[in-house]
Amino acid sequence: MHFTKDHEWIAVEGDIATVGITNYAAEQLGDVVFVELPEVGKVLKPGDSLAVVESVKAASDVYSPISGEVIAANDGLTGNPETVNQAPESLAWFARVKLANAAEVTGLMDRAAYEAYLQSL
């Protein structure tokens, strides 16, 4: 698993990347009430909005760390947004993206580096 400074995680299998937000992010956001997911087929560049996570009092954009085409979105979150609080780094993935440039992933943090980064905040 790879991590970004914006508290996203990316798990890569072959050329497919699964993206979600970290335990830390889910905790900071509080009770998640809605996730606006990307449409399948959307082509992303790094920095594009991948999803919007809403709590009662805030809406936060999740920016894509990678380039590629969205091939699946986790529709299960629509009826059960609390999954983001319960299992952010597993069941609550947001989207699967067909990677356009695998090198973008290698530049990201591993878990140890991310933990160290969290300590520094």
Binding site: F34, V56, A58, A59
Partner: peptide, 12 residues
């Protein structure tokens, strides 16, 4: 559903 509204979403 106030996240649609100006006092939270501001310019969005």
């Amino acid at each position: 559903l106030s996240t649609r509204e100006q006092h939270i979403r501001r310019d969005k």
